[in-house]
């Protein structure tokens, strides 16, 4: 059979108790319109639930939306679990309320991209497309 186009598959996830999902939903819609296949996790997910979805759906990217300021511990935990499960090939990006000074820390943890609130949508889309190409 003919070879089909590789589609970028993304999980947009809301870890933890925070319920502010306007941003996550906006990004999900924008990525869909950019031709990607998007799964939205829904609210109040634990890291293990997010990992489970990422495994079964075999997504290329996990986008975390975090507004409470807990982005460092949450991301740290996720990255650790990715390694434990042997799926560290999945690229992680983080959005939400993220101060500039925390961006290097997140990158150190292995995050591929950080998009604080107010980042233009096209920047996020371009990042994903470029990262997918080099992967």
């Amino acid at each position: 059979m003919s070879e089909d186009k590789k589609k970028i598959k993304i999980l947009i996830a809301k870890p933890g108790l925070d319920g502010h999902d306007r941003g996550a939903k906006v990004v999900a819609q924008a990525l869909k319109d950019a031709g990607m296949e998007v799964i939205y996790s829904g609210l109040h997910k634990t890291i293990d639930q997010i990992i489970n979805i990422a495994i079964q759906e075999d997504v290329d990217f996990i986008g975390l939306s975090i507004m409470t300021g807990a982005h460092i511990p949450i991301t740290e935990k996720l990255m650790k679990r990715l390694k434990e499960k042997g799926i560290e090939d999945k690229k992680v990006f983080v959005g939400g309320v993220i101060p500039q000074k925390d961006i290097p820390k997140l990158k150190e943890l292995g995050v591929a991209g950080v998009f604080p609130g107010g980042t233009p949508l096209r920047e996020t889309i371009e990042f994903i497309k470029n990262t997918a190409k080099t992967a």
């Binding site: 108790l17 409470t68 511990p73």
Partner: peptide, 22 residues
Amino acid sequence: DLPTQMGYDSDHEMAEGEVGRV
């Protein structure tokens, strides 16, 4: 804080890292 809003005590595992945060 979020654990309180969601009905979790501060020592619940879902509260980890969120106690008194917001």
